[in-house]
Design a protein around this nucleic acid. Structure first.
Length: 291
DNA sequence: GTCTGTTTAGACCCCG
DNA sequence: CGGGGTCTAAACAGAC
């Protein structure tokens, strides 16, 4: 594993702003930030804060991948980096199980709606050649507090302050649209994943067999050879939210099990929900769609 | 084969 | 204790 020692005075190393990193992770001066995949007691692993050699639990006192990645991206000249550039920038944090940490960062980029892709060459889009940038509209108040509270100085466009976040939460309005009614179309097979019947029912989402969905297109068929393809489509309702607004249903990026996912393009069967999109001045993010 | 990106499952954490 | 969030490992797809 690799230890980033935050010691006094803050060391400038390869141009990295250790003092900023220090504040990002809110560590006291004798603590260390470790980015390692090494297993510790109880199978626990992750980003650890250590004090006097005693590992602490992740949350509260430690950084997160989201925060770290966001820092790397926001600290770059154009506020966007390729995956390789992100890894290069985070190199000082990452020694040891580099593959594992790379994997984690990929997962993090891919699954969080606060990270979006921008084609390196817009004229010749290549799904594997993207810059990653931080989408501030994808940062929920909760995420802000958890990951970005100490990064406010590198988010000049983020029109929110900690106090505002708290106020937002205190006065959170009701969603503009009601939570979807739950309908169920049973089918054979038992699914246990996040899109299983049970999970979907629990989370008040509408479930339909893909084939039965009115907006389903044949283009979706046969595009995925994976084993555990869930042939369900979740109809999720999102209501206007951003870091300045109200609460998102989830910070996780909603997605189908298969189909084109490139940049901000939406699958062909996805339609804008104009009521949702335009009923609030805050709504300008195309991901606030409904399908 | 390598690199990049997506998805899933499971373990674990925190919070209500 | 359950739900949601984070992290890890792994499988997989597609571009090069």
């Amino acid at each position: 594993s690799f230890l980033l020692q935050v010691t006094k005075p803050p060391q400038l190393h390869h141009g990295y702003k250790w003092d900023l990193v220090f504040s990002v992770f809110s560590l006291s001066l004798d603590q260390e930030l470790i980015m390692t995949n090494n297993r510790v007691k109880g199978g626990f692993s992750g980003l650890l804060a250590e004090s006097s050699g005693v590992p602490r639990r992740r949350y509260k006192t430690t950084g997160t991948y989201i925060g770290l990645i966001a820092y790397a991206i926001q600290d770059s000249p154009d506020k966007m980096l390729t995956f390789k550039q992100i890894m290069k920038k985070l190199e000082p944090f990452v020694l040891g199980d580099k593959k594992g940490i790379e994997n984690n960062i990929r997962v993090c980029l891919s699954s969080n709606r606060c990270f979006v892709k921008v084609p390196v060459d817009p004229d010749y889009p290549n799904p594997k050649k993207n810059f990653w940038k931080v989408d501030e509209n994808g940062i929920t108040p909760k995420m802000f507090r958890r990951h970005f509270k100490y990064l406010i100085n590198i988010f000049p466009g983020l029109s929110i302050q900690t106090q505002q976040v708290d106020e937002c939460e205190d006065n959170a309005p009701e969603p503009l649209i009601p939570v979807c009614k739950v309908t169920e179309n049973k089918s054979e097979g038992k699914f246990t994943g996040p899109f299983s019947i049970e999970s979907l029912l629990k989370s008040d989402r509408e479930v339909k067999r893909l084939e039965e969905h009115p907006h389903y297109t044949d283009a979706q068929l046969g595009t995925n050879k994976r084993k555990n393809v869930y042939e369900y489509e979740a109809v999720k309702c999102y209501y206007p939210v951003s870091a300045v607004g109200w609460e998102l249903a989830s910070a996780k990026r909603p997605r189908l099990s298969s189909g084109p996912q490139f940049g901000q393009f939406l699958p062909p069967h996805v339609t804008y929900d104009h009521h949702v999109l335009f009923s609030s001045p805050l709504m300008y993010d195309i991901r606030y769609a409904r399908w």
